[in-house]
């Protein structure tokens, strides 16, 4: 039998709701990026873990830094539990800062979960001359740390800004690069000193230089150290004030949420639970884990409830910190 949208799947003896249906993943970016890749990997295995074994496919809806896709999931998609969206988690932070073309309330999405958490680090080429993070903190204003960024609103630009606002070291942010690969190339070529993004990606793509010790992770922007990076300090160790810690926490929060997935608000609880469970089980799927490991992706998943809590926590940020965020991150 089929069930009308919005009603609940009836008794267990009935055919499962998802049987013969297709789950669509909508990715707010062009094919080929990290989000797209992760999603295609998940789409391959998730059907196995949802009763009725639905098929799954991935669609790309790029534009507006993925805001088009986010607004689409919120406003247009039917709450029928068949569409799962992936967009930049930075948009949640921008809602907090009151960006005006955001048409959603992040607190109302049906959060599905995140396959991994991004462990934000800043990595630099050795040629920059900074031996460690202490050297950066002690550097005079005319010898700043030169960081490559993309544009305001992207994590590659915003996270260094937050780090700088929290710890107050000399920094020059050069924006206009196309992505982390472009920044990495620029760092290897001596154009910038380095950049800040997830360890997941750094350890795979920057392996050559890390192995050759021509590049090093300088600092990690997480309250706890990553198991691979026990000798790298965390930025939190250098935070002197409460405000600094809160700004860093917001940055870290963005990293944790980076890979999350969501369904449209009003998705029936039962369906959301089914998908959340399927998602969590996919993360434990041996084949999925093997594939992710081969690809060097950290699987340190968050379930839907945990993501939901992180999102709600973000909206509990005190108003004076929100003001400070706006001051640091919004284009002047």
């Amino acid at each position: 039998m089929t069930i009308a949208f919005g009603s609940t799947p009836a008794g267990a003896a009935e055919e499962p709701y998802y049987k013969g249906r297709t789950i669509r993943f909508i990715v707010g970016f062009t094919p080929g990026g990290g989000h797209d890749l992760y999603t295609r990997l998940i789409a391959r295995y998730i059907g196995k873990h949802i009763p009725g074994n639905p098929s799954a496919l991935v669609q790309n809806m790029p534009g507006g830094g993925s805001l088009i896709a986010a607004n689409h999931i919120y406003k247009v998609t039917k709450p029928d539990g068949l569409t799962i969206g992936k967009w930049a988690s930075g948009l949640i932070r921008q809602q907090l800062m009151g960006r005006k073309d955001i048409e959603f309330d992040s607190r109302k999405f049906g959060w599905v979960g995140a396959p991994g958490q991004d462990h934000l680090v800043c990595t630099i080429a050795k040629a920059s001359g900074f031996a460690n993070w202490r050297a950066v903190m002690a550097s005079p204003a005319d010898r700043p740390l030169i960081i490559g960024g993309i544009a305001p609103g992207t994590s590659l630009s915003d996270d260094p800004r937050l780090l700088q606002a929290a710890l107050g070291f000399p920094m020059s942010l050069v924006e206009g690069y196309k992505g982390s690969a472009d920044v990495r190339r620029a760092a290897d070529a001596g154009e910038v000193h380095g950049g800040c993004w997830g360890w997941d990606s750094v350890k795979v793509t920057w392996k050559d230089s890390l192995d050759a010790k021509t590049a090093q992770v300088l600092v990690q922007v997480m309250p706890t150290k990553h198991k691979d990076l026990s000798d790298v300090p965390t930025a939190f160790e250098f935070a002197k004030t409460d405000e600094a810690r809160q700004l860093l926490e917001i940055s870290a929060n963005g990293g944790r949420l980076l890979r999350n997935y969501a369904m449209s608000p009003g998705t029936p609880k039962e369906l959301l639970q089914i998908v959340r469970k399927g998602f969590s089980e996919t993360m434990k799927d041996r084949e999925f884990m093997a594939a992710a490991e081969k690809a060097g992706l950290d699987t340190d998943p968050l379930n839907g409830e945990e993501v939901e809590k992180l999102v709600h926590d973000l909206f509990k940020t005190p108003p004076q910190i929100v003001e400070r965020l706006k001051q640091v991150l919004l284009p002047k």
């Binding site: 890749l37 795979v204 392996k207 050559d208 594939a291 690809a295 060097g296």
Partner: peptide
């Protein structure tokens, strides 16, 4: 990446 081949000197 999915094939476990890191681009670069390898």
């Amino acid at each position: 990446t999915i094939q476990g081949l890191a681009p670069g000197s390898a």
